Amino acid sequence: MTIIEEHRSKLRSGDNTFSIEVTTLPGGDRPGRLVVQVDASGPAGEPVADGRIEVAQDVVGALGAVLAETLRHHQAMAGAGGRRARDRPACRGRPWTPELDAELERRWIAGESVEEIAARFERTPGGIRARLPRVGCDPERPGEYLPEPPSHREAAASP
């Protein structure tokens, strides 16, 4: 009598649905082997993964670890997933010059939005919001300067 074990799983991750089937092969000439079949579809039912691998049972754990590490490495290199998936602005993280600061101030006071300024400077909207107070502009009130701090008001009022 030949016994074949099968385990089927259907999992959702984000917009994708994964079907995984693991089958033990009958003894025969290569005992202790598994066949792993993976299929996945995207949100519109389009295939996003398809594959079959045959592996000895005694190396299943090692293969799983190697595959996981390799896929994490490729995900990081490709920038897939999470925040790294987006294209980064060309000037993100570059130092600001006095000329750039002056242009940032001029554009903010002229009423341009954070998104418009970020596109012009090739920086992130968060980077623009963080820089505005450094040039005296109020990031919470478009087109306005920060109020003068009390310490500066008292110094200006003194003879």
Rank of each mutant, 00 (worst) to 15 (best):
A155I: 09
D15A: 15
Y145S: 03
M77W: 08
S9Y: 14
L34S: 04
M1N: 05
E103H: 08
R94C: 10
E112H: 12
A78G: 11
C91I: 03
P139W: 07
I3R: 14
G45W: 03
W96A: 03
P89H: 09
E6M: 10
T17E: 04
V22N: 00
P95M: 05
T97Y: 02
P149I: 02
G27P: 11
R30C: 10
H73I: 15
R120I: 14
G126L: 06
L34C: 06
R129S: 11
P139T: 07
G42A: 13
G64T: 10
Q57K: 10
S13L: 15
G61E: 10
A90T: 12
G51A: 08
A118K: 01
R84G: 15
P43M: 13
T23Q: 15
D39V: 02
P133F: 08
P26L: 07
E21D: 09
R8A: 01
A110V: 03
R8N: 06
R88E: 14
D50C: 08
D29H: 10
I53H: 06
A56P: 01
V66Y: 02
P31F: 05
R30N: 13
R86M: 10
V36T: 04
G79Q: 08
E21Q: 14
R153K: 13
V59G: 00
L104K: 02
G28V: 06
E116M: 05
A90S: 12
A80V: 14
R92F: 08
A78R: 08
H152M: 09
T2P: 15
R12Q: 13
Q75Y: 04
R153V: 13
L71H: 00
G143F: 04
L67D: 00
G93D: 13
P98L: 06
R123M: 08
I109G: 01
S9Q: 15
P142N: 08
T2N: 11
G93P: 03
V59I: 15
A49R: 01
Q57T: 09
A119C: 05
V36A: 04
R107K: 11
A49F: 08
G14V: 15
P147A: 09
S113G: 07
S9T: 11
V135M: 01
L11Y: 04
Q75E: 14
W108D: 01
R84C: 03
G27C: 10
D50T: 12
V60C: 07
R134F: 02
P142A: 11
V22H: 02
N16Y: 09
R12L: 11
E112D: 14
